[in-house]
Nucleic acid binder design. Sequence first.
DNA 1: ATTGAAAGAGTCTCAGT
DNA 2: ACTGAGACTCTTTCAAT
Lengths: 156, 156
Amino acid sequence: MAVKLNLDKLDLQIIQHMMENAEVSYADLGKKLYVSGGTIHVRIKKLEEAGIVKGTRLNADLKMLGYDVIAFIGIYLKESSLYDSVARELQKIPEIVRLNYTTGNYSMFAEIVCKDISQLRYVLHDQLQKIKGIERTETFISLEESFVRNVKVVGS
Amino acid sequence: MAVKLNLDKLDLQIIQHMMENAEVSYADLGKKLYVSGGTIHVRIKKLEEAGIVKGTRLNADLKMLGYDVIAFIGIYLKESSLYDSVARELQKIPEIVRLNYTTGNYSMFAEIVCKDISQLRYVLHDQLQKIKGIERTETFISLEESFVRNVKVVGS
DNA sequence: ATTGAAAGAGTCTCAGT
DNA sequence: ACTGAGACTCTTTCAAT
């Protein structure tokens, strides 16, 4: 899974910069990293071919789109063997944007994004309760997101 | 915060598509949505000016970069008034990539990305314990990420 | 592997509808 | 508000180092 490729500092610097902002031109990024734009291009192509880099994504402000409520849900299963079937059911609920199988208290851990509290209540109460295999859930509503950022893959 | 702007279905469709893949050309996206490339351009410019769209980000595979361990940390504070000072300390730890102030059991909820378990143990044991104001923590290590996706902002 | 230049593709502007 | 065409910029290829 974690294929160790020959990545040098330049590769990591490119990734670090472009994880933050992918709209920079190769020429400009090259200037910042003291190589030519052509070298940036070659490196990115190599990273794409290796499967390390998988395109770019638009960064949209969900709050401004009306999605004000983020919550985390700890899920207790009746039996841990039900993980796959519960995961499939949860994937059908579009408000659930992430699901992890975890150690610790909960069997699984979900993140949900909703327009408002009443939509959250609907998903929690009407949709999750209907899924066979879920024993109970605990919900943690985010009152404030202090920060979100990328992991630091290279020293500055 | 959640400024309700006049966004029509086309705006949302553009956002939906480009949150998934921002590398599509305006001409191609226009073809898919039955408008010209020029219209896509105008809409994106409008969304950027409104602050709804904030550029694009490179999508890099953290596992392939050697960051194999994702974990969630529920944090109990001694007093909730310590939130800001603890948040500032947590922000100094580069492995902590997200922090939310939450309702429920925990005062705050963090996400951490590490290269391996020993690095995770180091952060949890040596760094978090030193922060004044943290009473105790509960860690949930992700054994598998079932899915991560964007919220659905428009009906297909 | 890196570079710089030429060819190709995409973005951006603008006049017309 | 949408369109299409021209000007401009960026990506991509490639021969040379």
